[in-house]
Nucleic acid binder design. Sequence first.
DNA 1: ACACTCGAGTTCAATGACCGAACTCAATGC
DNA 2: GCATTGAGTTCGGTCATTGAACTCGAGTGT
Lengths: 170, 170
Amino acid sequence: MLGKDYADQDCALARALEVVGERWTLLILRDAFYGVRRFNDFQAHLDIPKAVLSDRLSALVVEGVLDRVPDPDHGGRHLYELTESGRELWPALHALMSWGGRHRATNSRLFVHAPCDAVLDDEGRCSRCGLTPGPDEILTRPREGRRPRRSDPVAIALRAPHHLLEPLDT
Amino acid sequence: MLGKDYADQDCALARALEVVGERWTLLILRDAFYGVRRFNDFQAHLDIPKAVLSDRLSALVVEGVLDRVPDPDHGGRHLYELTESGRELWPALHALMSWGGRHRATNSRLFVHAPCDAVLDDEGRCSRCGLTPGPDEILTRPREGRRPRRSDPVAIALRAPHHLLEPLDT
DNA sequence: ACACTCGAGTTCAATGACCGAACTCAATGC
DNA sequence: GCATTGAGTTCGGTCATTGAACTCGAGTGT
């Protein structure tokens, strides 16, 4: 694993980056939050080489961030789902997304606290009730008036408003 | 820049990762928050190849996350300091650190809201006043009872309690 | 039963990134 | 004047990533 870990860094950040710090990993997890669960859906939406996707998914399963479960509809296939520890990465993901939205490009999605129907601010706090909900209470939809750049089936399915973690059907 | 960017991803997260998603970058920024400002201090504390450190620092300066200013004490040298946009990465960094602290290793540091003298929770919220302060209001110190793993001068200097962003002297 | 397709990978050669060691160069320190 | 130290750059070797081609097994159509 040379080149992947930061063994000499005595720091929780280094430990976290050993899990999610490699190229593509956080984008894979973003898609997992958006409801993507199948190998090919990740691949279609991310344009990632299959070998790398395979590596990353296995690593995330080993790390306990994703679960690999048999697909009930298709024998021999699997679904990749966020574990509890994976779901707890949401605040980190959201914080990075907010920073990107503020400093590079306006964020292409809104996140809404489902019970309040009020948008989340940059800190992930509901603008009505003030709580910072977990992903299971968050709805997402694309922001208005943006011409979408991607046209793969997953990107199209993601244009419909939906709950985070809710399985996508393509 | 092949292999560094995610040009086809229409997403604020991808934009953020193009800036901070490469190996070492977030650890460099962590040290910058801790007060490290000199090339050799980064190098000593991170055990990073100088060529890579040089690359990352220049890239962060180009991206407007760090400023490269002349060192008033030493002609011909420079200091690397967080810009405003760099300082706004604190919530993302803190969120990742919290996750690492919860799921991999207990965090080796405490973060304290200076005005309240109360520790921050995993969401970065002050346990007394409930605000989520920026780095300029945060004090950090090592947690008690941990045998430190590193013994370079920077690691030793960092053992003293200090404000985030406050220049370290080594 | 048979060929076909499609999803989910694995294998492979080429390219790019990362590594550590050695080198440069300017500014102190003695 | 000479050695040292900080801040890089250069360089050969190694490791990771890439896209294309290949494999394998489960359904599907006939």
